[in-house]
């Protein structure tokens, strides 16, 4: 069963550092336990988002890549 996202941000076409900055802003707007879906085409996001997740303690529930688009489901701690 797939996890439903409470909010989605589309960072496709954006480059470092915007995807991470927007992820942080979006997480700030969520309640603890809610899930953010984040989409990006910046290849840097593949490593940046997991590192951001580890540093800020907001866990990644799912990550995938399809046709050059990375998708992360991040739970607000």
């Amino acid at each position: 069963m797939s996890i439903a996202a409470d909010k989605t941000i589309d960072c496709k076409g954006q480059s470092c550092p915007e995807p991470v900055l927007r992820t942080k802003m979006a997480i700030n707007e969520l309640q603890s336990g809610q899930v953010l879906e984040m989409l990006a085409t910046d290849p840097g996001s593949a490593n940046d988002i997991p590192a951001w997740s580890k540093r800020t303690g907001n866990p990644i529930l799912e990550s995938s890549q399809n046709g050059g688009v990375w998708r992360f489901l991040i739970k607000k701690a």
Binding site: C16, P17, V20, L21, T23, K24, M25, W52, R55, T56
Partner: peptide
């Protein structure tokens, strides 16, 4: 500017 804004986004 990139590193400082990213740093605050990383708490």
């Amino acid at each position: 500017l990139i590193l400082a804004s990213t740093g605050v986004a990383m708490d």
